[in-house]
Design a protein around this nucleic acid. Structure first.
Lengths: 333, 333
DNA sequence: CGCGGCAGTACCGGATGTTAT
DNA sequence: AATAACATCCGGTACTGCCGC
């Protein structure tokens, strides 16, 4: 019923050559005459031959697979899904598979079991047992953003220039007339927290302004945002506000409305990380498109180069977030 | 420098037995005495032995991997990410890996190349070249939701009871006093579209009501939602509204506000698919938690059973969405 | 004698049927 | 009748060497 999948032997027999010749022909290696190669390829196509990857892996000790580790607990953020598919598509173009790795509970110190040639991780910290396990495999690892606590242990990273981005955003506010700009920041400890905090502080210092900041969790509940924004609006004389953590835009808008502020007019607002909802809120919310697909693809590219001889030219690739200006920061007339 | 990874041979030599004995001992197969087994296991642990998966795959023709195919173009919906990790965690507990499959462009008719024992697909239609390729492999396929156009070709499915869910939602509205309930539906063609449309129509008929419906795209732009909801509110005398497609809640709330309706009071509103934003909007929005993690895990379980001898007891598993009542449908006082 | 083109073959690491003890 | 050693095989890869010109 099921005619066994054709193997190199079948192709070799059908083409009247040795399996070695077939193997070479299929992989476009020198040592076979153009005519034989042509014939072998024709026969292979006709028989529907495809390589048996386990067999190849066994021989070459390469797996044709990349392990992808997304941060635990944040699976609702669309950023990571986009990132994942950027990586998957890039890997596919290189003939590689992407294995989605499970999150390990902190007690579990066992090494990751999947057979992969290297890893791509995002927003990683060594607090995470899964990340430690990955670093301990000794295989190449490329990270999206820096790895907090072990940046020298990865083969490469694709990072955002958050300082420049923050600067551009504040310049944009200033150009729209903002004079007193507050920032609702994530807590220290995450890779980008410190960069954006520094970007903000430096910009304020350069412009002889007053730093007005509040801290809320990395993934805040609406109440956290509301409390911080209410506090800023009640106690500080601000005409612009940046909320950095994800999911902050909607509660911030609500707070502004309650405080009687007209967002986009007497209060300029921006979120940092773009989310689909930003285009749906009223007013629409200015934020940075981090182009996660491109970054995911870049991580895969860097990983593959790291596996190649003598590594890539650059260990760190820097990406500029793209500012998407929307109604919340576009002062009316 | 790198002490080659230990193999069966190494363990066998260190334990003073044959590789066959080691192989049997490690897989807990009969034919080795308890003492030898104990010793072998100890040596294996000490040497840090792990099986070489390609070698095992080569011999057994099993890959220890599952291919996961998420619908293209909807990668921003958190549902699928949750689903994916439900599948990954379930697979991990069974010692399996999950390979995230790339989306194929329609022209590409080549079979999927990844080596997997079976596939999990979600919200699939045979319009999708990727799905056709997967079905053509002849390997077991389990689908989350029915596969439009090829439901008999899959080994199993985990589906929601959308009719019962829709009924429960409308009952909830009625209990809160709603008399004229409108529905903004997705277009026909998707698996659940027809079920929810039927659930709505049947319920209305049973209650001698008037069906008031509009159709918008499966993944609507805010404008689509706004237009439909504005139209309903302007031209129909409704006191409750269900918006089914994802991402509809926020624009629907905005429309209601513009029409001068107080949502949760003189207009009851519910979305169908729960999203994180529903807990953040004002008012918060009632919707169904589809528990995607559980469904992803169930798909993997069903796939593994399908691979076993004589298949699973049931080909189709039915799940009840969990209604999460929030402010938008909880009439004040 | 050198060289291109190809056949022959020794692995890669584990699973399993067969043969000793 | 139980255990364990031995031999094969899974499908490729890559090295060695033979052949003819």
């Amino acid at each position: 019923m099921t005619p066994r999948k054709p193997t190199l032997h079948d192709v070799a027999a059908a083409a009247g050559v040795s399996i070695a010749a077939v193997s070479f022909a299929l992989r476009d290696k020198p040592g076979v005459s153009p005519e034989t190669k042509e014939r072998v390829l024709a026969v292979a196509r006709e028989l529907g031959y495809t390589v048996n990857l386990p067999a190849r892996s066994l021989r070459t000790a390469r797996y044709g697979a990349i392990g992808l580790y997304l941060p635990p607990g944040t699976t609702r953020l669309p950023y990571y899904t986009e990132f994942a598919f950027g990586a998957v598509d890039a890997a596919d173009r290189l003939g590689l598979s992407v294995i989605l790795l499970p999150h390990r509970d902190p007690a579990d110190a066992s090494p990751p079991t999947a057979s992969v040639d290297g890893y791509v991780v995002v927003d990683a910290t060594t607090e995470d047992a899964g990340i430690r396990g990955i670093l301990d495999t000794g295989r190449p690892v490329v990270s999206g953003e820096h790895v907090v606590g072990a940046d020298e242990r990865v083969s490469g990273s694709v990072v955002y220039d958050h300082i420049s981005a923050t600067t551009r955003l504040l310049d944009h506010f200033a150009a729209a007339g903002a004079r007193r700009i507050a920032a609702v920041l994530p807590p220290d400890g995450a890779a980008w927290s410190e960069e954006v905090a520094r970007g903000y502080a430096d910009w304020i210092a350069r412009h002889d302004g007053v730093a007005i900041t509040r801290r809320i969790p990395f993934v805040p509940r609406p109440d956290d945002v509301t409390a911080a924004v209410d506090d800023v609006l009640a106690n500080e004389d601000v005409d612009a506000l940046v909320v950095f953590p994800s999911g902050s835009a909607a509660p911030a808008l609500a707070s502004a409305a309650r405080a009687g502020r007209r967002v986009g007019d007497d209060l300029l607002l921006a979120a940092y990380v773009d989310e689909p909802s930003h285009a749906l809120l009223t007013p629409t919310v200015t934020s940075f498109d981090l182009e996660p697909r491109d970054v995911g693809a870049a991580c895969v590219a860097l990983l593959v180069e790291a596996g190649d001889a003598d590594g890539p030219a650059d260990r760190v690739r820097i990406t500029q977030p793209r500012l998407v200006v929307r109604g919340s920061s576009a002062r009316e007339r």
